[in-house]
């Protein structure tokens, strides 16, 4: 385990070095994502300024929701940048490189690329957190841990949907669609959704686990709920590993030209 962590750290170092080769482009992408998030943010500020509250959420909870989601999503794709590209790798037969090296394929693939856009998410998450005004150590630790668990869930969901490519050929669109749906639903107060939709948000598209649940954990300091979130993250990661490893037996390679960026 320790040697795998050391290896992943080495990959992350290399990813940062690779991203730094194009500093201007890197900064522009990160700033672009920051602005993109900011537009949503401004919308909610204007909304709550007019209406005050929405299904139990005030602007303070929205700041916290944004902070956790953008930190979680940012961490997920900053470190495991290939999480939402698994379907492409499988469909185009680009796993050969990973299969010829003596490392587990899934972590090696996940951590082999850093998405520069997500630096914008990370920095946005930190700034959003400043808006919450929660500077006590407990809240900071709970927010950080919840964001890390949200990151694991994001990676797992992308990984599971992407691995469907082993079975259905091309799962790029479904990964994109369901990934976007998860992010979009998670950015709204959970009280807006009832019945079947709410069930979906706790199962098939687990948006609640990356938004509403972590917000409740930080707000209430409920460690039991944090434990449940950790269990959900562990189930997600296990499921992703099983779906990927089982699918890998069906991998057909291909003649596409690869480049490690």
């Amino acid at each position: 385990m320790l040697r795998e962590i050391k290896f992943v750290l080495q990959l992350i170092k290399l990813n940062i070095a690779s991203a730094m080769e194009y500093r201007a482009s890197f900064l522009m992408q990160a700033v672009g994502m920051f602005i993109n998030n900011g537009i949503y943010f401004v919308f909610w500020i204007l909304f709550f300024d007019k209406f005050g509250e929405l299904r139990g959420y005030s602007i303070d909870q929205i700041f916290l929701l944004f902070a956790i989601i953008t930190l979680g999503f940012g961490m997920a794709l900053t470190f495991a940048g290939n999480a939402n590209r698994i379907a492409e790798f499988v469909a185009q037969g680009r796993l050969d490189y990973y299969l010829t090296l003596p490392r587990p394929v899934l972590p090696h693939l996940l951590f082999s690329w850093m998405n520069p856009f997500t630096f914008g998410d990370l920095s946005f998450g930190v700034i959003s957190y400043f808006f919450t005004g929660r500077f006590d150590p407990v809240s900071i630790v709970l927010t950080f841990v919840s964001a890390v668990l949200a990151a694991v869930i994001f990676v797992s969901v992308f990984g599971i949907f992407g691995s469907l490519a082993f079975y259905i050929g091309n799962a790029k669109e479904i990964t994109f669609f369901l990934g976007n749906a998860m992010i979009s639903f998670s950015l709204y107060p959970i009280g807006l959704f009832q019945g079947a939709v709410r069930l979906i948000l706790y199962t098939l598209i687990p948006a609640a686990f990356v938004g509403a649940v972590p917000v409740e954990i930080v707000e209430t300091g409920n460690l039991k709920l944090l434990g449940y979130l950790a269990i959900a993250a562990a189930i997600g990661a296990t499921l992703m590993t099983v779906v990927f490893q089982t699918g890998l037996r069906r991998y057909e390679s291909g003649s596409a030209i690869n480049v490690n960026m």
Binding site: L11, A17, Y97, S255, M261
Partner: peptide
């Protein structure tokens, strides 16, 4: 994989934006 090396002419192993020495260091870890 610890005992074989493989080169696929159309599937480079070297990291495209980095110097070869960086990929060598990564391979030392791998």
């Amino acid at each position: 994989a610890y005992h074989i090396g493989a080169i696929f002419g159309q599937k480079p192993q070297l990291w495209y934006h980095l110097p070869p020495i960086d990929t060598f260091e990564l391979f030392a870890h791998i």
